[in-house]
Design a protein around this nucleic acid. Structure first.
Length: 425
RNA sequence: GGAGAGAUGGCUGAGUGGCCGAAAGCGAUCGCCUGCUAAGCGAUUGUACGCCGAUAAAAGGUGUACCGCGGGUUCGAAUCCCGCUCUCUCCGCCA
């Protein structure tokens, strides 16, 4: 969420910035509620002050055995008024919060203004597209004919958008996950985390999934637990309501987790194959930084994600999301898109974002500045490093051969017992 | 699942209705002292929100709230009552 004081003082600027995202927000309503809240607060605090002072006087009188009945009667009324005002104040505050919690982050100045993903500038392209002497097949065909991906049985067990991996397919995805974790912990300086795969309402609110995007989540019936849509949720919430030491920053975590997404509203989109699933595996990088370094950290976070594809020798390009394409909590996002020959397209395989203090404010993640002793909000960042399911897709499609077999990328062979290819049984 | 105990500041730990935002100790920071280190002495040591502050911010001042969370009793609650959450111990079950 945005800072209420900042909002109050920069209404026009915020309105303009949000318009660039294609959002219109009822900032008049915000102003009215904010003013009302402050008036009520003052009134109620004055009454509390009176009650505190007079209650002391009552105590003194009683000690002296003097009569205090008049004061007690008066304070009875004051307390009743406080109770009344408190209820109104609470209503006002939750109405105000309801607005503020649904206002998206303000895009960073370097983010290009646009109206759709068509306007996302390409910032980097890497690798030569493979020139195949045969028409490339999509991964679902390859996976089924090799007997390593079973979409039919995945549907039988759970439903649409669930897939069963078998044999070398299961091994390949596990190898990809292990390779990525080893790379980020061993060479990029991240600490590995294995988090809970369910999270509660507070955690979901802290990172911004709630209250606005409840329909995208799977919820455990009757309990306040949600299946995580990304490891970003549990890992960012590690430090919820904490004050960190400046010298411990930046903190860099990397976590494997399955991710669960309801994919409401995406009917008919990417219905075949592994691209869009209700459950998929992902390795996620999360950072907590000081405000001064967060954009530098975003650049190398993105580079860390790209490095996976470089090592796997899979062509990719990186785009910077324009204002219209930016996620709710993000101030700036790079998407890394891997080349997928079976689809003749680049497809998103990582999304790296700087949330600045947007999540930190919601989740109360702060740090104490050594120079001044003051507490400030940290900046949080995260990025996929990478989506494992889509990485499996990229490997299958880029490394396919005319006989339908798959060459294993060199970087993955140590993770697959030295195996060099996946061939039809 | 059954039985019991507990939750207070960075930590340990007092506090059972007003003098408690909270003793004491530890730790930390600053200063003094000291050949260095240790010891000693002194001071400081939470967060949030509102208001005041010469304009924005800060310094500073002031008020309110916070003793796991939510409600209740009372003129007044860390303290009494109810509900919840979490932690610990024992039993059962289980990977």
């Amino acid at each position: 969420m945005l800072d209420i004081k900042f909002l109050r003082q920069n209404l026009d600027q915020v309105r303009r910035k949000l318009a660039e995202r294609g959002q219109t927000i009822d900032l008049e309503q915000f102003s009215a509620l904010d003013a009302r809240r402050r008036n009520l607060l003052q009134e109620v605090e004055t009454l509390r002050n009176e009650r505190n002072t007079v209650s002391k006087e009552i105590g003194d009188r009683k000690k002296r055995k003097a009569d205090a009945a008049d004061l007690i009667a008066r304070m009875g009324e004051v307390s009743a008024r406080i109770k009344n005002l408190d209820a109104i104040l609470e209503e006002t505050e939750s109405a105000l919060e309801a607005i503020v919690m649904t206002i998206p982050n303000v895009p960073h100045d370097s983010v290009v203004r646009g109206t759709s993903s068509e306007d996302n500038p390409i910032v980097r392209t890497w690798g030569d597209l493979p020139r195949l002497a045969f028409p490339p097949r999509p991964h679902w065909e390859l996976g089924e004919s090799l007997g390593i991906l079973d979409f039919t049985r995945g549907s039988k067990i759970a439903g649409a958008r669930f897939t069963l991996y078998r044999g070398a397919g299961a091994l390949l995805e596990r190898a990809i996950i292990n390779f990525m974790l080893d790379l980020h912990t061993g060479e990029h300086g991240y600490m590995e985390i294995l988090p809970p795969f369910l999270a509660n309402r507070e955690s979901m609110t802290g990172t911004g999934q709630l209250p606005k995007f409840a329909e995208d989540l799977f919820k455990i019936e009757g309990l306040d637990y949600y299946l995580i849509p990304t490891a970003e949720v549990p890992v960012t919430n590690i430090h919820r309501e904490e004050i960190l030491n400046e010298r411990d920053l930046p903190i860099r975590y990397v976590a494997y987790s399955p991710c669960f997404r309801a994919e409401a509203g995406s009917y008919g989109k990417d219905t075949r194959g592994l691209i869009r699933q209700h459950q998929f595996n992902k390795v996620e990088m999360v950072k907590f930084t000081t405000p001064e370094t967060s954009y530098e950290e975003l650049e190398n976070l993105t580079a860390n994600a790209e490095e996976v594809l470089r090592r796997l020798e899979i062509p990719f390009r990186t785009v910077s999301l324009c204002t219209a394409d930016l996620g709710f909590s993000s101030a700036k996002t790079y998407d890394v898109e891997a080349w997928m020959p079976g689809q003749d397209a680049y497809r998103e395989i990582s999304s790296c974002s700087n949330f600045e203090d947007f999540q930190a404010r919601r989740a109360a993640i702060r740090f104490r500045r050594e120079a001044t002793g003051k507490v400030e909000f940290v900046h949080t960042l995260n990025g996929s490093g990478l989506a494992a399911g889509r990485t499996t897709v990229a490997v299958l499609e880029n490394y396919q051969r005319s006989d339908g077999s798959i060459l294993i990328p060199k970087a993955l062979r140590p993770y697959m017992g030295g195996r060099e290819k996946i061939a039809p049984a």
